[in-house]
Design a protein around this nucleic acid. Structure first.
Length: 258
DNA sequence: ATGCCGTGGAAACCACGA
């Protein structure tokens, strides 16, 4: 079973690229972030025609997350991250698909830091960590994936010294990610490729992709049951080189059947 | 080192992203 995450940066503007990649890669389940579309503007028919059921949480202009599945309808278990009724951002959706619980998240960017946006990021991280602790009590495979907006270590940044004051790499941010992982999650890419340079995002300018000036910020966190079944993981790096592409590349894992 | 690019929505620029 292949499960992928992809920050599309606008699902309607990105639809041809998304459909091309779905056709080429044929993932069973896909978590999407940054739909940048209100609920009623999600391209439901095109996704259905591509062979996928979908649930999504849209928002006008910003954010927005979705879970696609071609192996059974996703059964929604959570919409929006618990813990703050004032938070109206569409950044979290969760579903069970074929007895696997999958949380799809778009963690706040947090820049400029310090400031209210950075405070929001860290608060959101705390709420995610609290919710994740609950997920770890489930006796089934659980996956938390999406755009974490965190480079966990210096290996995950093309030029670490240039990013130390950035909200994606500040010590508080890395500490928050570590605290989450230390609950008992496995970073799938780092488990399989502990020392490789692997990026999932390249800026649109300064020829970042051509220079491989990238960041690893899209992650798969697995509970023990999923970790036990992990077969492979990777980044569809070449998709970042397509015309009219997102600034993120799709990331995926393969797990064996129960 | 830097939104230099890209997207969406409103308005012919602005907010936001990482």
């Amino acid at each position: 079973m292949k499960i992928a995450t992809y920050n599309v940066n606008g699902i309607n503007g990105r639809l041809p690229v998304l459909l091309r990649w779905l056709n080429e890669s044929a993932p069973d389940v896909v978590c999407l972030q940054e739909l940048k579309a209100p609920q009623e503007k999600f391209p439901e028919q095109a996704i259905k025609d591509a062979g996928y059921h979908a649930i999504w949480h849209g928002q006008k202009s910003w954010n927005g997350v979705a879970i696609l599945s071609r192996s059974g309808q996703p059964v929604e278990t959570q919409r929006g991250l618990p813990g703050d009724p004032e938070d109206v951002h569409s950044r979290y959706i969760e579903a069970t698909v074929n007895d696997i619980t999958i949380g799809c998240l778009y963690l706040p960017n947090g820049n400029p830091a310090p400031g209210p946006k950075f405070d929001y990021k860290l608060a959101w991280f705390e709420r995610l960590t609290l919710h994740a602790a609950g997920l770890l009590t489930l006796k089934r495979p659980v996956i938390l994936t999406g755009d974490y907006n965190v480079m966990p270590t210096e290996k995950d940044v093309y030029k670490p010294e240039g990013w130390v004051n950035d909200a994606l790499f500040r010590p508080e941010t890395r500490a928050a990610f570590k605290k989450l992982v230390d609950q008992g999650w496995t970073d799938a890419i780092r488990k399989l490729y502990p020392n490789d340079t692997i990026y999932t995002f390249w800026d649109y300018f300064r020829n970042a992709y051509e220079r491989n000036a990238g960041l690893r910020i899209d992650h798969f966190l697995l509970n023990a049951e999923t970790d036990r079944r992990l077969l492979a993981a990777g980044v569809d790096h070449h998709v970042r080189g397509w015309e009219k592409t997102s600034d993120h590349a799709p990331v995926w894992i393969e797990i064996k059947a129960a």
